[in-house]
């Protein structure tokens, strides 16, 4: 049974078609990487999967016990967050929906997630004073507070140096091994093939959808990797 299935999806961004005739299923335990150039509709697809954008046509069905609001989202950082005075624990707890007050269970979950991501020693730190890699871990812990079912990661390693990126990828791999379904949007095709189980190559229409091994041998994959290898 699929957690999310997109059926003949068509999405628009500022009045223009950004994604069309897209159908794919996200299964439990999947590790899917969505690749494509800038303006290929990746961000629009993310918004739609999060339920923040209505499809022009087609549908997105959430099933297998997944609700639309149960997607742990790791967004790209906004400039406003760079000098936002927030404690690490405050940020992680904001992943919990419980209003008005955080329950003891939520606080325990937040502590567990920080432990899982190796940031327990930072719990009293200030978010804006952390390094890029540490900030991503904090936001990942927040996403895990929202759900343990499905993570949606938007360019998680942008701006991180190779060593920190590799560590973050290892962390994501470990979460996936532990049963968390992962959808990742990335520029880094080589890394995507190495780690993801399935690849969706988007260029408004889906150019490729299938296993990562098949992608490496496909025309689309070879062409895109060739382009990517130059820079």
């Amino acid at each position: 049974m699929a957690l999310i299935s997109c059926r003949d999806l068509c999405l628009a961004y500022e009045g223009r078609i950004a994604v069309s005739s897209l159908s794919f299923d996200v299964l439990k335990g999947d590790y899917i990487c969505i690749v494509g150039e800038n303006g290929s509709g990746k961000s629009t697809l993310i918004k739609a999967l999060l339920g923040l954008k209505k499809p022009v046509s087609g549908e997105i069905v959430y099933s297998d016990g997944l609700k639309k609001t149960e997607i742990g989202y790791l967004p790209q950082q906004t400039p406003a967050q760079k000098d936002f005075p927030a404690g690490v624990t405050e940020v992680v707890l904001s992943g919990c929906r419980g209003a008005p007050f955080h329950t003891r269970a939520e606080k325990r979950a937040a502590a567990e997630n920080m432990e899982l991501l190796g940031i327990s020693d930072l719990k009293k730190a200030c978010y804006r004073e952390l390094s890029g890699g540490q900030q991503q871990r904090v936001l990942l812990a927040r996403a895990l507070c929202a759900t343990k079912k499905l993570l949606l990661l938007d360019e998680p390693v942008t701006g991180l140096d190779p060593l920190v990126s590799a560590e973050l990828y290892r962390l994501i791999q470990r979460l996936n091994d532990g049963g968390v379904t992962v959808i990742m949007v990335s520029h880094d095709v080589d890394c995507a093939i190495e780690r993801a189980k399935k690849i969706l190559h988007l260029q408004t229409v889906p150019l490729f959808w299938g296993s990562a091994c098949d992608y490496a041998d496909s025309d689309t994959g070879r062409r895109f990797m060739g382009d990517g290898g130059d820079d």
Partner: peptide, 18 residues
């Protein structure tokens, strides 16, 4: 308080979790 923090810190994430 919690919601106001969530929306101020990261509106997109807050919307995504409902």
């Amino acid at each position: 308080y919690g919601r106001i923090f969530a929306v101020t810190f990261d509106e997109t994430f807050a919307r995504a979790i409902g």
